[in-house]
Computed example of a mutant assay.
Amino acid sequence: MRRLLLLMLVFHFSLTNAQLGDIHLILKDAETLAPIDDVTVTVLRTKQNHLSNAEGRVSFALTGVSSIQITHTQYETQTLRSTALKEKENVVLLKSVVNTLDEIIITKQHPQKILKTLIENSVAKLTTPCRLKVYSREFFKRNGNYVFYNDGLMNFQISGKNKDFKNSILVEQNRSIGLIDTDVPNDLLGYDLNNIMENYYNFKYLEPLLEARAKKDYDFVIKSYTKNDNYYLMVVNALDPVKGFKDDYSIIYDKKKKVIIEVSSSVTPNSVANAHEKTAVGARNMYKSNFKNSYRFNGEHEYYLLSSREEIGFERVDKKEIRTEIEVRNYFVTTNFSQNEFTFKESEVFKDKALFNLKDKILTDYWNVSGLIPTPEEETIIKSIADEP
């Protein structure tokens, strides 16, 4: 009897340890075996979100048995049990339906009016008050060389409603690596954390498409989205000849709930090619600009920003014959959402524009477990910046 009890305890201990610890996933396309980035992996028991990197990799610690949901707007959703993930690195193949053609949807209203309704309804449905635990990462490049990096783990407490969103930021941990010249203005370093969440919650980047003349500048098309029967895809492309800087947009939305799930844009090549070069000292000539925002909708009570990625590149005119190329790449990942508010002192609120101004606070290696693990290439970049004299 004692031996049987001992065997049962050993078996239970072994099973428990197999279900706990670090989980490593590699997400790949089932047909091409190419890695897939921007895949959302959610631990359903804790509601923790993780995003796959450029190599399709996701890593996280598991403290109990849970179902794990894997979602991407271009692939079929999968749900796995943690007990099935027994390998050191678990390869998960996702089935894509990219080859299926989307059909154009004929609507009574002009798509611009539909977009206006989508934005208004999405803003109204965004869950507030709420708390987002967010991991941010930023790379800064000058004249082709990476010279600065920072990341941080923050809590955003968002309140307000209907275009009147407010947020308070508490920084848990952060680090900055490298040096920035004193003549580089703060606004070149990506996120202005004081208003970035308010912009995302107001869908500010879509405002150019709501202007009256947008019907003359853009072609609006709504298509079925065969990758998900619940969604429609709105494609908005700048019409030739392109005047000024204009983006091409892709907006995925839930056709029944009328909320935006994903929005992305990229400056058109013709905008860059036909742009008039600015020569005045201090002017900026843009050659790259793109962003992608994803929103998560769980039932009727959880709708929030899940992730964002932005990249901008421009040439700054320093003097008549001196130009500086600057590129900034930012990531923003919501690792955890909660409708519980936290208490804080006003003196604890982060009010600066960017984390690079804040003194380093490192308690754990949070960058390895906070939603988006660095790729080996990114780790090499970070190390090279740190090794600079």
Score class of each variant (00 low, 15 high):
K292S: 08
N202Y: 04
K113E: 15
T182F: 14
V41F: 03
D37F: 00
I70H: 12
K47M: 02
P185K: 14
T127S: 02
K161E: 13
Y303M: 08
V184A: 09
V263R: 12
N53W: 07
G282M: 08
E388K: 15
Y303F: 02
Y200A: 07
M154A: 12
F342I: 11
S370V: 01
G64M: 06
T16N: 08
K383C: 15
I326V: 14
I105M: 12
Y200M: 12
E348H: 09
D360E: 09
L206I: 09
K361C: 14
Y295R: 04
K255P: 13
T40A: 02
M197N: 07
L363K: 11
T32A: 09
D248G: 12
V123S: 01
K141P: 02
T79S: 00
P208F: 03
H301W: 15
L93Q: 04
G178S: 07
I106T: 09
N194W: 06
T83S: 10
K345R: 12
G160M: 08
T32V: 10
T324F: 05
N274R: 05
T334R: 14
H24E: 01
E321R: 14
A280Y: 13
L206M: 02
L4C: 10
R3S: 07
L93R: 08
N368W: 13
S266D: 14
D192N: 13
I322T: 14
D183A: 13
N90H: 00
R213Y: 10
M286P: 15
L25G: 06
I196P: 11
M154H: 14
A238G: 05
K320R: 10
F203D: 02
T100C: 05
K243G: 11
S265M: 11
T42E: 05
L189S: 00
F344W: 10
P389G: 14
N194D: 05
L363F: 10
T127D: 11
L126K: 01
K278Q: 06
S52V: 01
K88W: 01
N53V: 11
P185D: 04
S271R: 00
F332E: 01
F297T: 14
S294H: 06
I180V: 05
D192Y: 00
